[in-house]
Design a binder for these strands. Structure first.
Lengths: 198, 198
DNA sequence: TAGGACATGTAATGCGTTACATGATTAT
DNA sequence: ATAATCATGTAACGCATTACATGTCCTA
């Protein structure tokens, strides 16, 4: 197969911004949103994100603290010092402007970026360099990966989101179910591929 | 809802490396694999990637050229100058060591990373801050995004991969079908969510 | 009473993207 | 003959991750 065999005539653009150039990146709004759901310190934001948004939007601590600083400078959040014992700590909350900025961003009908980085599919793509048995083992690994994820969704993510739903915050649960079912689908799809290969 | 409501007791690790520390990142192997499939210059690698791997593994030009330089220094590829007119150009091919490194990496049973960055699900997660109609509009936008992607898969990606399959390179097609059906599932799932909300 | 896990945050580094540059080819 | 697009590549910048630092609480 030559490179041209796989080369597209006109590569399509998946993502394009619209409207005025957003002053903040998506991470800033993720932080705003998590604050709105009740997280107060950078660490609480990290904990909350790890148990929810992390599976479709990664936020690492340095990003969180960077965004908090930016947002504070811009007046979208206010922070106050609230040390515990000798350990410094800062608690933040949304300002009215912050709440408004979040809602505006949520409603903004901008193209929704979707990026997937999947080592499983990448290796599958190159699997012509392998023996059939190695390919099978690999597809099984893809399936097991989603099986582990599904377990985590069922035992941790969905229960926590259910609790939130009882308090009236419903969409974390809708999102968690979406993720859960996605992995159910991935398991089934990988299983089908295993069948084909057998 | 407090932050604790959503916070997990013990955040699970999705990705862990095993075995010796890999001397190259995944991008390097992606470049090796694309060279093996027939791409010769950095630009051809870019073209091929844009029409295939890009939907589950993004590779931008600077990454490609960086990796080519690394791989050449390590002896996994060899490059020769092949200018066209006054325009410089370098053509690369795998060395035996490069072919071997690629196959070893493909067989290596290391944890398969999977990262998703989905603005659609992120906004859905925060949708409690919105009116029902705005949420509906947003879910529709998620569905339409996958509808556009599906169209691209059907009209471009799958046909190109089919051509490659006729030449005996089968797994790009398996991968493309996987991606295609993923978007079919996403369309259905988003549609179901729209129903729920109506 | 010391070792580990929790809580909170930052510095340094490196990976990736945006924007640019330059020559060739095609269209009008 | 000029603009647009294709082809090829690089420099500069910024975002993100890895690794670290520091204090506190629990527990054996």
């Amino acid at each position: 197969m030559s490179a041209r065999t796989l080369a597209a005539p006109a590569p399509a653009d998946t993502v394009a911004a619209a409207g005025r150039p957003a002053p903040f990146g998506v991470n800033a709004y993720a932080v705003l949103g998590l604050l709105r759901l009740g997280a107060r310190s950078g660490y609480e934001i990290k904990r909350t994100a790890d148990a929810s948004t992390r599976f479709f939007w990664v936020l690492s601590p340095p990003q969180i603290y960077t965004e908090l600083a930016n947002l504070e400078r811009a007046g979208l959040v206010t922070g106050r010092s609230a040390p515990q014992g000798g350990r410094r700590r800062r608690l933040f909350e949304l300002t009215a402007a912050g709440e408004q900025a979040l809602v505006e961003w949520l409603r903004e009908p901008v193209a929704l970026s979707l990026e997937i980085r999947d080592m499983g599919l990448l290796k599958l793509f190159f699997a012509d360099a392998l023996e059939r048995d190695d390919v099978l083992a690999h597809v099984r690994a893809i399936r097991r990966r989603s099986e582990r994820m599904l377990e985590h969704f069922e035992q941790v993510i969905v229960p926590l989101a259910s609790q939130a739903a009882e308090g009236g915050t419903r969409y974390p649960l809708a999102t968690a179910r979406f993720g859960q079912e996605l992995h159910e689908w991935l398991i089934a799809r990988a299983g089908a591929l295993e069948q084909e290969l057998s």
